[in-house]
């Protein structure tokens, strides 16, 4: 039981640590903005498909058969990968470092 009490105190201390509040605020802002970005990219694409499908059929150059829909579609796939990369990069460095400091301070 004493273990439980110790853990409760630890959690309390972390919760009151301004660095923790800072981490939560930063991370949550970052992850929700990235989620919304992905959501907007995808739904922009779907809405174009639904309302102006002809737009995606425009050729990339005169005399070419390739439509701009192909690079745009592949672009949506690549953007998903890039967004995950952006998140992982910042989380691996900045957020993990903040987290380490919080744990250090509240030991």
């Amino acid at each position: 039981m004493s273990n439980d009490a110790a853990e409760r105190q630890l959690i309390e201390r972390i919760h009151n640590n301004p660095k923790y509040q800072d981490l939560v605020a930063k991370r949550s802002k970052f992850s929700w903005s990235l989620s919304i970005t992905m959501f907007l990219i995808y739904y922009a694409f779907i809405l174009i498909v639904a309302f102006v499908p002809k737009f995606l059929g425009i050729k990339i150059a005169a005399g070419s058969v390739i439509s701009i829909g192909i690079p745009i579609g592949v672009g949506v796939i690549v953007s998903a990968f890039i967004l995950t990369g952006i998140y992982v990069r910042r989380a691996n460095s900045e957020f993990d470092e903040m987290n380490r400091q919080i744990k250090e301070e509240t030991k």
Binding site: S31, S35, F39, I41, Y42, G73, V76, A80, T84, Y87
Partner: peptide
């Protein structure tokens, strides 16, 4: 196929 992929970043972020 794009629809099947775009859930993944959301899983990561949230």
């Amino acid at each position: 196929s794009i629809g099947w992929l775009v859930g993944w970043p959301i899983i990561l972020f949230l």
